[in-house]
Write a protein that binds this DNA or RNA. Structure first.
Lengths: 312, 312
DNA sequence: TCCAGATACTTGACTAAGTCAAATAATTGA
DNA sequence: TCAATTATTTGACTTAGTCAAGTATCTGGA
């Protein structure tokens, strides 16, 4: 049972292969422009102008990576043809805000339609499920490469369980603990059983799930299960490695505690293992006290299990 | 509990956004060439020559999307500079096979290294897990767009369960049945419980799992569970919608039957629901006989459950 | 308040990159 | 055998983009 990891060079080669591939891909898409009255760069400028307001020449040059001199001439040509007009910016006489004229919009429309149709034709060759996969993969690439420190506005949000979450959490927990601690497939199976039972016997009055989502991806979760009138159990806290450091783990535990208090439980309990250090820190900080430890052999390893309790 | 589906236009817009994004991205990567002695196109040609043998001018023009005239001059320049040499192809005097000279390789090396380093620097800004996600997403895009009917050599392969599979199967079954039949989250939970129990009590002598993998992705699975010395149960047959029509379902069932026979079971049994028509066809074709039906209310729907048996 | 930088463009003077059509030579298929 | 096709080259262009040096403004201290 091996976990595949790309080595650094494999990754680099894969990215370079993709760059070569997409260079060609964009080249193919560009061929469409050849017939039209506009070059690819002109079309990019028109696109930006059609979709954003109050742009200045500098904005355009920066966002499209164009030479300011080249852009200047390009805009002059557009202005002469009556496609764009510039409005003075009162605060700064050097800059002016550039916008498409109605004629500019009319010129852009067929261009836009052609590009739309071309992409539609491209997608049409794929099954709907593959189209979704393509879009998702593209968004992932864009997010990962484009996110030069551009953090999402909302770092994460919490929501209850949806269809598909159980499997996702089972898989991620299985993979993460296999990678980080060498646990075998029985841990993944345990998570599956716990979550299966949780959903099956779910009692919304006394129990709850919190899924942390970041840009549409599940990055953490925790579950609160009723043990008795007085005791609730916090289970399966996890945070994606890529989303650590955002305080998601702490927040999930706090939500749990808040819910348990609100429902009138007296004790919140949880079971963990001593090697899971960062989780333990969160529990300690939240006021949990270590109640007992016991050695056990599970998931293919010798472990030390711990029960922690919080009196509410 | 909603399942998000991209509409056609959303998909098209997302792909167009990605094209604009990656046009810019490639532009950024190109800036690196400006200092060097070679243009992006020249570098692409050198790259192809360095990595493939026996290329002709036509091959290059086709694969890189270049104008033959432009390429001809470009190669002439390379030849004059001693970077490439042409060898006559005996079968066809029009064509010649183009290869880098040692000097050509020396000229390409720093170029190649710079490109490598540039990508390495790009990746370095990402956590290792994000690097993997990026690479996977790029490969997905490339496969989906590049695979113009270029089917993989091996359509699929079967392997036993690995860490991560359980969660994946739980998720996919949950999502597929929610989408196709409107089943609620309790179906996903049932799958989780079944698979959790399967792994936990797994007896390799009498039981087995088959995972169908296509280009590294799980596209189907089936499980054989021991009920008694004489009776085995086939469980959780599924095939990804994107991988249907390859005979994977049939193959999985056949593997199950073969294994059950080899182990000396007398009866292979399975439970399914009447609405799962394509699965039923597979069972019928394999020789299963409908033993009994019963109405039940599960997964938020009124269903008709069916038990099928195969005498081995 | 002034003024030494910066910033937002513009212009001039180029060059590289690519296109298109026509020509040449060799090959293929009926 | 020869018309059509293919591989490559050449000539004659155009376009797209670069680079550096302007001009006109603005900004942040002394």
């Amino acid at each position: 049972m091996t976990i595949h990891h790309h080595s650094g060079n494999e990754r680099i080669d894969a990215v370079r292969a993709f760059n070569r591939f997409y260079t060609r891909q964009i080249g193919l898409l560009d061929e469409g422009w050849l017939k039209s009255a506009f070059s690819l760069t002109e079309a990019r400028v028109l696109y930006e102008l059609a979709h954003r307001d109050g742009l200045t020449a500098t904005d355009l040059a920066r966002d499209l990576g164009l030479d300011p001199g080249y852009l200047s001439r390009l805009l002059k040509k557009f202005e002469e043809r009556g496609l764009v007009e510039r409005a003075a910016i009162e605060a700064d006489a050097r800059r002016s805000s550039i916008a498409l004229t109605p004629a500019g919009r009319r010129a852009f429309a067929p261009l836009n339609r052609d590009s739309h149709d071309q992409v539609a034709a491209l997608l049409d060759r794929l099954a709907a499920s593959d189209q979704d996969r393509l879009v998702k993969a593209m968004q992932t690439v864009q997010r990962l490469l484009g996110g030069d420190g551009a953090e999402p506005k909302v770092p994460y949000l919490l929501r209850p369980l949806q269809v598909g979450d159980v499997g996702w959490i089972v898989r991620r927990q299985g993979l993460i603990y296999a990678q980080d601690y060498g646990w075998d497939e029985t841990y993944e199976a345990l998570v599956a059983e716990i979550l299966g039972a949780f959903v099956k016997s779910f009692d919304p009055k006394w129990e709850r799930s919190w899924i942390a989502e970041r840009e549409g991806e599940v990055v953490g979760s925790v579950f609160l299960v009723r043990k008795s009138d007085e005791v609730a159990k916090l289970r399966l806290l996890y945070v994606e490695p890529s989303a650590r450091g955002l305080g998601i783990g702490k927040r999930l535990v706090e939500e749990c505690i808040g819910f348990a208090r609100a429902k009138g439980y007296r004790t919140l309990t949880l079971w963990t293992n001593d090697i899971l250090v960062s989780a333990r820190r969160i529990y300690e900080a939240a006021g949990f006290k270590l109640a007992e430890e016991e050695r056990h052999h599970s998931f293919g390893k010798d472990l030390v299990g711990q029960n922690w309790n919080l009196e509410l």
